[in-house]
Design a protein around this nucleic acid. Structure first.
Lengths: 200, 200
DNA sequence: TGCAAACTTGCACTGAGTGTAGTGTAATTT
DNA sequence: AAATTACACTACACTCAGTGCAAGTTTGCA
């Protein structure tokens, strides 16, 4: 009972812990340098050096430079889907998504969002990846909706609702960043969904 | 009358003509090689050599490798906006977009579309750019809609309609490519807009 | 202890994209 | 027609992202 249990009190191996620490350190170093010097000017050599690893090891953890930024972005769809699963089944799908989105938006750190958005705009390729990830999130959201309302005859409707509601999220995020966080995201989201209701 | 008039019967200088010819030759060579060898395997050196220009000149005409593919994609939004301008003002905006989209889709060469779609899927970065260009087209469409219905109080509604209808276009294109062009694009589009009407 | 898998690194290489400076030719000016 | 300017094109040299490979080191486990 000493071989494994004695070495990982927290839960899983020291290896796993170090791995996560290294990944996190690389990510944070990368973002810091992106902010300090700009996305293009911060080279992978710089990041690796400051994170205390070799250039080659960078690619062991992240498959590309923009992967660092995408690792932040990619969480969004999953989190929204997760919150959606917690919503009661008797709501209308669109309302469920709205409420889930509102709960997510309340926990997003404002300044971080603005900084990251500005960062992503500095590189065309990154910006493209970000927008593309929205569409992927739409797919994730659709899958979560289907899970909740699996009736086959609702499929097209759900696909549409995913598109619509993620569109509302997208428009809200864009508006939020465009006006530099002047109005809170929660408010913008509520407005967007209200317009959705009113217009359709 | 021989110095200038005698040299440009078509209208504008020989320089302009050669320029367009070269740009076209590079583009066509690029696409051919992408198809023959795959996007990644076809290097810019290859394309430049086969197009009879230097590597450096490639970048004089296109700012990146994927710019060749994007130059095809980017037309879509503009064409749709153009057709939309030809629609009568007394239609409902959504109907106007639908009819414009139907007219565009009737003129799109099927095989070319399928080939290009397959190509774009072979590179993540290109695929991301393609999806991002959809969002840009949505913006172009919105601008065209505003031009036609400039009443300020309709703005949010039009933004929504642009999102919705371009979403329908996007879903149709995806379905078309997914099923390998089995059903004609016009039909898929009509269905998508019908669903839109029925569900909202 | 010893072995296998996971982690880490250096080295060498390909390919995209940029800066620069220079050449030839079309277009303009005088 | 000659001189000037602007554009198309090129070679060369460079930076940087990303990959393949062949090591080495560390950790987990029997």
């Amino acid at each position: 009972m000493k071989q494994t249990a004695g070495r990982n009190p927290p839960g899983e191996g020291l290896r796993e812990r170090k791995r996560r620490e290294t990944a996190k350190r690389i990510k944070e170093t990368g973002i810091r340098l992106f902010i300090e010097r700009g996305y293009d000017a911060a080279t992978i050599d710089d990041i690796a050096a400051e994170a205390g690893i070799s250039r080659r090891t960078f690619f062991y953890y992240y498959k590309s430079k923009d992967d660092i930024l995408m690792s932040l972005q990619s969480a969004l769809g999953d989190i929204l889907a997760e919150r959606l699963r917690e919503e009661p089944d008797d709501k209308r799908p669109l309302d469920a998504v709205r409420d889930a989105a509102l709960r997510v938006s309340a926990t997003v750190p404002k300044d971080e969002m603005l900084v990251l958005d500005r960062l992503m705009r500095s590189s065309e390729a990154v910006q493209a990846r970000k927008v593309a990830s929205y569409v992927q999130h739409e797919g994730t959201l659709f899958a979560a909706l289907r899970e909740k309302w699996p009736e086959p005859e609702r499929e097209t409707a759900l696909r549409l609702i995913a598109m619509l509601s993620f569109g509302a999220v997208r428009l809200s995020l864009d508006a939020f960043n465009r006006e530099g966080g002047k109005r809170p995201l929660v408010e913008l989201l509520r407005d967007a969904f209200d317009v959705l209701e009113a217009e359709i």
